[in-house]
Simulated assay, not measured.
Amino acid sequence: MPLIKNTLNCIAIAMLASAVVIAEEKPGQKSSAMSDAWLDGKAETVLLLNKNLNSFTIDTKVNNGIVTLTGEVNSDIDKRLAGELVAGIDGVKKINNELMVTDKKSISDTISSEYTDAKIATVVKTRLLLDQQIPGTKIDVSAQGGTITLKGSVKSSAQKDLAQAIAENTEDVKKVVNNLTIVK
């Protein structure tokens, strides 16, 4: 682990040094080029040192203090994180965040999936509680990704099968894992 930290620190120092070399003023060149190169080096370093981002897939360009981020990230959160990190650098006037999200699963998809799981678990549990043929209070119901898991105890294999059938016939249920035990 220390080797990785040392390597990252060396890379960061090299990037900052290269920003200064690139920014050397040439006759007729504006002093903003030096400032832009300095900001670019700082932005690259901030992204490199963040353990949640793959900085090698993110490119930065700076023009008059306006930083443009291009490349690819894995999620909407990573896109926002990169923008926020760079926006926090002194001298950055504006961020153009043009990063492309390669993972198609967004935050709203995750929330929607969790909501659906909670809904179907509740519906299955309610149906089991309302059925007079099954001891619904002794059955735990959980859901993940549309898969319902039944745990607990029933008095017969017929009750076990009925509980599974009720779960399988509930809307949005993709699969049922029946871990019910028979206790006489």
Rank of each mutant, 00 (worst) to 15 (best):
I4Q: 13
I4R: 12
N9R: 13
C10G: 12
C10K: 14
I13Y: 11
M15H: 06
A17V: 11
A19K: 03
V21G: 02
I22E: 11
I22Q: 12
I22V: 08
A23S: 14
E25S: 14
P27D: 12
G28K: 08
Q29G: 09
S31E: 08
M34R: 11
S35F: 09
S35P: 00
S35T: 13
S35Y: 09
A37V: 05
W38M: 15
L39P: 02
D40V: 03
A43L: 01
A43F: 02
A43E: 04
L48V: 03
L48K: 05
L49Y: 00
L49R: 13
N50S: 02
K51Q: 11
K51P: 09
L53Y: 07
S55R: 04
T57G: 00
I58N: 07
D59I: 05
T60P: 04
K61D: 11
V62M: 03
N64T: 05
G65Y: 06
G65R: 03
I66K: 10
I66C: 05
V67I: 10
S75C: 02
S75F: 00
S75N: 01
I77R: 02
K79W: 06
R80Q: 14
L81I: 03
G83M: 04
A87P: 01
I89N: 02
I89C: 06
D90F: 10
G91R: 04
G91D: 06
K93Y: 08
K93H: 08
I95T: 04
N97P: 04
N97C: 11
E98S: 07
L99E: 05
M100Y: 13
T102P: 04
T102V: 11
D103M: 03
D103A: 00
K104V: 15
S106N: 01
S108P: 10
I111R: 12
S112G: 01
E114M: 15
E114R: 15
E114P: 05
A118S: 14
A118L: 09
K119W: 12
T122H: 03
T122S: 13
V123P: 01
V124G: 08
K125A: 14
L128N: 03
L128G: 00
L129M: 11
L130H: 00
D131S: 13
D131E: 14
Q133M: 13
P135S: 04
G136C: 03
I139G: 00
I139R: 00
I139H: 05
D140K: 06
S142V: 13
S142C: 08
A143E: 12
Q144E: 13
Q144Y: 14
G146C: 01
G146K: 07
I148A: 08
I148F: 08
T149Y: 05
T149C: 09
L150A: 05
L150Y: 00
L150N: 09
S153R: 11
V154E: 01
V154P: 04
S156G: 05
S157N: 14
A158F: 11
A158I: 11
D161P: 10
L162W: 08
L162H: 10
A163P: 00
A163C: 02
A163Q: 06
A165Q: 13
T170L: 10
D172W: 10
V177A: 10
N178Y: 02
N179H: 10
N179A: 06
L180Q: 03
K184T: 15
K184Y: 13
K184G: 15
